[in-house]
Structure formats: C-alpha cells, structure tokens
Design a protein around this nucleic acid. Sequence first.
RNA 1: CGGGACGUGGCGCAGCUUGGUAGCGCGGUUGCUUUGGGAGCAAUAGGUCGCAGGUUCGAAUCCUGUCGUCCCGACCA
Length: 478
Amino acid sequence: MEEEEDKGKDAERARWYTDVVIQAELADYSPVKGCMVIRPYGYALWENIQRALDQMIKDLGHVNAYFPMLIPESFMTKEKEHVEGFAPECAVVTHGGGKKLDEPLFVRPTSETIINHMFAKWVQSWRDLPLLINQWANVVRWEMRTRLFLRTTEFLWQEGHTAHATEQEAEEEARRMLEMYKDFAENWMALPVLTGEKTAAERFAGAVRTYCIEGLMRDGKALQAGTSHFLGQNFAKAFDIQFQSAGGGLEHVWQTSWGVSTRLIGALIMGHGDEKGLVLPPKLAPYQVVIVPIYKKDDEKAVVTEYCRKLVSMLKPLVRVHFDEREQYTPGWKFNHWEQKGVPLRINIGPRDVAANVVEIARRDTGDKLRGVSEHGLDAEVVKLLDIIQKNIYDKALAFRTENTKQIADFDGFKKQLDTANCFIESHWCESAKCEASIKEETKATIRCIPFDWEKTPGKCIYCKGDATTRVVFARAY
RNA sequence: CGGGACGUGGCGCAGCUUGGUAGCGCGGUUGCUUUGGGAGCAAUAGGUCGCAGGUUCGAAUCCUGUCGUCCCGACCA
C-alpha cells in the first residue's frame, strides 16, 4: 500500500519535471528516441552556464580546442577498462558515402581516446607539459532510459583533458577542477554540493580515482552534477604518451579529465523549482527582469509603454531585461508565464505607477510583491534584489539539504528512512564492494561519495556491522 | 530487454465495452468588448482516427501484426 503511494508520488514528480521542462520551453522531444531539442530559452540558459564556466576554465590556464566526433574503433579498444565501460553504450557508424566502412567509426561517448592519440604526438619533452585542454562538444551515449536534460542520448558538455609531468601535479589538477565545479555550482547555480571521491563501483571507466560534486534535489534524490578524474598513467600507457624528463629519461604523462554537461540544467530545475515551475538563479537566468505593462485604453498604453521603455534603457546596461510588449496576452497571463519560466524579478507597470513614478516588483523566489518602488534608483534596487535572490535560493537549498541529511547507524533505520523519504544518509561503511552492492540491491541507494576531509571515526558498517572508520553519503540517485 | 499506460485537427482529451462514416476543451484566424493574477461573446478554418493486414454490407471502434511515445525497473553524466 505504502509502496503504491510512493510509486504514485514518484510518478507525479517525474511528471512535474517533464511538465516544467516543456512548459518553460526549455526543451522539446525530438523525433529520435532519447534525443531532445534544446529550445531558445533552454539554450540561452546553457549559454550563460557555458560563458561563466568557460571563463573560469580559462582563468585556470586551460585553452579550448575541438576534436572530431568520429573515433576509429581501434582507438576505443586500447584502454581495457575504458572500452568495457563504454562499448555497450556507443553508437557506431558502419556506413559512409553509400559504402560499408573498412573500420567502423565510434561516435564519441567521451573524447579520451581521440584526444590522447593527439597528445601522444604533441608531447615530446617535459617542456611541453602541462598540457591543459578543454573542449565544448556533444557526445552520444546510447542509454536505455532517457529523461530531458538528465540523461539524453546526445548531450552537450565541456570536457577537460590534461597531461602532467608528475603524479602529484595531475592529482592536484583533478582536485582543483573539482573545486572549480563546486565554486560554480554554489556561486552561480546557487546549489550547495558535496565534494568527494567515488567508490570503485562508481568510478569512471579507465580512471584511477573519480571525484564528484553531488547535489540534493528537492525530491530528496541525489544528482551527480560534475566529475573530475585522476587518470594516472592508464591512457598514457595505452596511447603511448611519453616525454623526456629534465633528467633525460622517458616517462609516461600523468593525466586528468573532467566534465559537466547539460545535466546541470536538470539540476537547476530540480534543485530550485517549485509548484509554479522554474526558479532560476539570477546569475544564470536568460532574463533577470521582465517588465509587464498594464493598461486599458490606448492613451494609457502610450504612457505606460513610454515609461517602460525608459526603464528598460535604464536597466539594460546592468541586467538582462526583457520588455513583454505582446498584446495578445493579458497581464495576468504574463505573470504566470514568466513565473513558470523562473524569471527572478518581474516589474509590473500600470497607469497608477506611471502617475506616481514608481513600479511594482514581484520576486519569484518568495512571491513577495514590493509596491511603490521609486523609479529613482531603480537600477540599484534591482541589482540589489538580484543579489538577495541569488543568496536566498542558495540558503534555501542549503537549509533543505541540512534538513534532509540524516546520520544513521543501523540498516533497519536506513531502510525505514528511505521508505519514508529520500535524502542524504551519512553512515559508516567497511569499504567492501560486497556491502555496497547489497545495499544497492536492497534499497536502490548508492554511495554518492566519500566526502573529503571527513574525520575517520570508529564505527560499524551500516550493512555488515563490521568495524569501519570511513563515513560515506548514501542516497538514491538520478 | 521485462512490467504498465497510451497513439484520434497545432496541443490536451472523449468516443471504442454494445461497429453505422468523428466530437469537446485549449490554441489559431476575424470582429467587438476587455486588460493590476492564466479575459468574454460571436463567427470561422483545421482530422485518410500511428501504420499494415484481416473480419464485416459497413471499422476510430472487433481481430492479428507492426512502429512509436511516456511512466516504472536493470545500465549510466
């Protein structure tokens, strides 16, 4: 019975998510199963994410390049674990120009192989290192089950690939980029994330260690929002990336790779959204402010429109502002429309406001309406409010995560918690893959990460009750 | 690949049980009245009912097959 209810709720949430994506005009279904069309509003959001991240990546010394989408089959098979991990979900081109190809071409599921093939040519000396490359690209992974933004057959992402002279330098790079992702998630997306290391079971195919940022969505499920891998010398050996060291010897490089994808948009939706639809962080919102004019007669329309235009030109240098002049919709319709789309601030302007040289400002995050805000200094007021909203939705998300993170020591309590509500669960774990697998089997919860810098404390494994000092975060995940 | 649901104007659906030649809401167009929280009235356009077979005098409806989509599971960012 309870299970039935849970299923009902889950289905409702799945429906809510899909509805938000479609109604906010972020994306639409494509004719090909599992693919999606990113619509202008969704793409504008992605462009803002891209712009901010791209700058952060460059500020850390990386440069952008572009590698081809088609990869020779032989490349894919060079690194054993990599091929085992990815081969089942790859799309393969077998024909071209009307003929069967001699060697099938893999559509990249990620670009380690092709990039490392090139790295082998480019790296000769320790003086060529570190090599710090990023690319913005699409990748294809043939998923069994897809969801808009969260898991699509084709998705857009950024993938960084670096090569270093020493193990320590590569390790530091992997950690540094993870910190960059955390910074981005928290300061731009307003989503608090945990940073930590993945267990062997969750590790990237071909990596020595995988680090991740994990967010908690409003339904209590975890979402891996970004990953950073320390690849060791696995690919360097498979692709023969060697350099002559200062000491004269030949050595394999040490590498990293790291990426975030259009899944981040899914994180935004599920991390901040409410019953009215999207709630976007001001720093990333395509429109930070939308102005809705209100009028009855033509003479009112003229006056209101002129006033609105004046305010638009006042705000334009400072914020992304949109004046919704459409005449086929009523103000009430527009209020709902822009709320669904998550616009942080809406300015309503009618004849009364014009007469008094004021505006009405509605906040999306709280629903508050500020009446009679003076036109004088409005630009500063808007900037201030956007800052407040950015901070407020972060605080809300953080409070939500704190409330929904439980420390649990016994497996019965663990199961009971997940039956009641999804959340982050902190527990001891004995580090055996067997316990991890059994827990997943019985509860669908996985170890999201082994957080960095958590003190080792004596305890008992949540599953086998054996001695354990490592505490980890469990959750059901997307 | 398993389990469930569903394919009918642009979108959302009814009609199917009990066969008789397709209807509702939204949207579109035109006109008038409206506009501070999803406007009203009137007129108007728009559909070989996913596809292919079959049963029948007659199929959206019954049968068989097939394709596709969504939701739930196994795989994954």
